[in-house]
Structure formats: C-alpha cells, structure tokens
Computed example of a mutant assay.
Amino acid sequence: MKVAFVGKGGSGKTTLSSLFIRHLTAKGLPVVAVDADINQHLGVALGLDEGRAAKITAMGDRLPEIKTYLRGRNWRISSPSAMVKTTPPGSGSRLLRLRGDDPIHALGQDVDGATLLVTGPFNDEDLGVACYHSKTGAVELYLNHLVDGPGEYVVVDMTAGADTFASGLFTRFDLMFLVAEPTRKGVGVYRQYKEYAADYDVAITVIGNKIQGDEDIAYLREHVGDDLLTWVGQSAAVRAVEQGRQGVALESANEAALDWMLAAVDARRKDWAKYQRQAIDFHLKNARSWANAATGENLEKQVDADFRFPA
C-alpha cells in the first residue's frame, strides 16, 4: 500500500508519519519511508542524527540514473531525458518491487527496519532557477513504476500545504492521511484538499493531532465529519523523541490510533486499472500543457495503452 501524510506546515505530519513507520516496522512489516518534504526532517524524526541523515543520497540528485533504469527497453520513450515526472510504465519498462535490488532502493538508508529514501532539500543552488517539484518528480516516477504487494508499505511524508497537488503525485496513493490540528487553519487545509481531490477519486481521511481534550475532538467532528478517522493526543513519548531521548513508551491511546490507521490502510482495495488510468490521464495533461514544448517531442506517444501491471 502507498500512503501519504499531508497537511499544513507545523501540523505534525512528519511526527505522525514517523510514528506510523515505527508502528509498521515494530510489527515486522516491510516499509519504505520517503521524505518528500521541502524541509527534510523525516530521518531525524525516525531517530537518525542530523549528520547521518544529511549523508543519504538524494533521489533528486540521481534523476538521470533513475530515468535510465526505469526506461529499460521501453522504446516508446526516445531517451531518458524525454522522461518527465508523469511518464507511465509500458512494455519494456523496468518495474520495481518494494526494497528490491535496484539502483533506486540502493540510495536508501536502513533505519530500524525501514528503508529511508529522500528527495533532497531545496538548497541555495535551486534558488531562482529551480522548483521543488522537479525533485519530487523522482518520487512520482518511483511510485509510477512500483508494484507493491499485500502487506508492503510505502509511507511518504509530503511537502506542506497544497503543493501536493502541483502534479499527479497526489493520485499515486492508496490513502492520504491529512493531519489536522483542531483549529480554523487546520480544517481550512482539509477543505482545500477535499476540493482539489474531489474530481480524482482520491481517498483522504483526517488524523487529528495535538488533541488536548473532548472539545478538540468535537471541533474536528463538527468541521470534517465522518472523514475524521482517529486522533493523537499530547505525548510524552513524542516529546522525548523530539528531544533526542529514546525508550519512552508511546501512550496506549496513541498506540491505538496507529492501529486504527493501519486498519484503514489495509482495508483499501488495490485497483491497478484505476492507478494506471490516472497516471495516463495526468501524463497526457502534462504533455499537452508544458512537457511537449519543453522536450520538443510528442510525449503522448509514450503511453502504452496495452500495458497492465502484474497481479
């Protein structure tokens, strides 16, 4: 299953994504964690020191190699440079298996049983000449070509705010956890996401965060209704991790919230036909709006209408 954590800046999505990743690995489940936030903090949230986290090779820095590998012998793609972030797989493409023996997963760092991939930070060299979506494009290509099986999980900590919708990346997930504080800004981001996702059959559920009591829960129920799946309260264990202290057990109520989240993910039905259809739709949209002009080619010809993901 492919899972995204989204929400406004400061909502706690990185903290909750790290808790969920730890919850999965504690159960012995195979997990790939992807830090796709413009502020790269997932590694530290998972327990790496900042120096070790900063040494992980960024996917965004290896985009030409990633494209070359995924292209494989798919001759509908004239060259790796003609691949854009939305290019879907076709006959001859190399498909990925979770934590497989390939150059993309080889970029990852093992963190307590999870493989951590990072897009790379937005740095000084990017200012004025680049956009962060070019780096998250590596994640979109990765997810486009990944065949995840039952009991396998990819957990992506997305960039804050509505930037998630700047490409087709938001359609690459089986479920999106929207982390919302019980505030007007928190539910405002929820409404924005629901509006953007309404036409694309994207599953979004709300995880309340920084809950201090029944009034906070009632507030979220009033404003997000049945989309509220569960909530996480103030946590001494989370504060300990944030302070660099280990060994503080997560509260039982917060542990139960993680169980609810896992159950919601596992309840999703895998629909590979829809997954490929959405990839093609966004690729055609991107080709017509900018990519054909940018590459000097008709990238609509990259679509292999007969391609099917393996069962």
Rank of each mutant, 00 (worst) to 15 (best):
M1K: 09
M1I: 11
K2D: 06
F5N: 04
K13L: 12
T14N: 10
L19K: 00
I21C: 09
P30Q: 15
P30W: 11
V31L: 14
D35R: 08
Q40F: 00
L42Q: 12
G43I: 01
V44P: 01
D49L: 12
E50M: 07
E50A: 15
G51R: 10
G51H: 11
A53L: 07
A53F: 02
A54I: 08
A58P: 13
L63C: 07
K67G: 02
G72M: 10
W75T: 12
S79R: 12
A82P: 01
K85T: 10
T87N: 08
G90V: 06
S91R: 13
R94A: 00
L95S: 01
L98M: 08
D102I: 09
A106V: 03
L107D: 06
Q109K: 05
D110N: 12
G113E: 09
V118W: 00
G120T: 12
F122Y: 13
E125R: 14
K135W: 04
T136N: 06
T136E: 07
A138N: 04
Y142C: 09
G149F: 04
E152M: 03
V155M: 06
V156K: 03
A160M: 04
G161V: 01
A162R: 13
D163Y: 00
T164D: 12
G168E: 07
R184F: 02
K185T: 03
V189G: 09
V189H: 07
R191H: 14
Q192D: 12
Y193C: 04
Y200W: 13
Y200E: 15
D201W: 02
I204S: 07
V206Q: 06
Q212P: 04
Q212G: 15
R221I: 02
L229C: 05
Q234A: 02
V238R: 00
R239T: 10
E242A: 08
G244E: 00
R245V: 10
V248E: 15
A253W: 06
A257T: 05
L258K: 06
W260D: 11
M261Q: 13
A264P: 11
A267S: 14
R268E: 15
K270L: 09
D271M: 06
A273P: 05
K274E: 14
K274N: 14
Q276G: 14
I280C: 10
D281F: 13
L284C: 12
K285H: 14
S289P: 03
A293Y: 04
G296D: 08
V303L: 05
A305G: 04
D306M: 04
